[in-house]
Amino acid sequence: MSCAPCWQDILPGTITLGASSRSVETGLWRSVRPILDAGKCVSCLRCWVQCPDSSIQTCDGGTVQGIDMFFCKGCGICAAVCPVGAISIRPESDFLEETGPSGGVNPVKVGELVGQC
């Protein structure tokens, strides 16, 4: 378990480390969830380029692999721009039985560093 740092251990100059927000699970905000139908997807990448949260996962060749639920906030833009209807939007309440982090790629939770000693 990590611990919020004492003042002696704070980095100088107000700094934080690059890309550290990748441990922040913004997926927790979601009230609706995009569901990708891989069978329909043509990997046109319109969703990838318009996603405000960089949550469309692709493989090396630029093929859409899925949607990163750790970060996806459920804005619905991906479904709106999809030309083939490969992404549908469902309420998060449909997924209440899921346990654990909704995305699961990143172990650190929001606030893990806050207030624990």
Binding site: R22, E25, T26, W29, R30, P52, K73, G74
Partner: peptide, 9 residues
């Protein structure tokens, strides 16, 4: 990078 706190959409 991912994990920013801008509003959805």
């Amino acid at each position: 990078a991912e994990g920013h706190r801008m509003c959805p959409g």
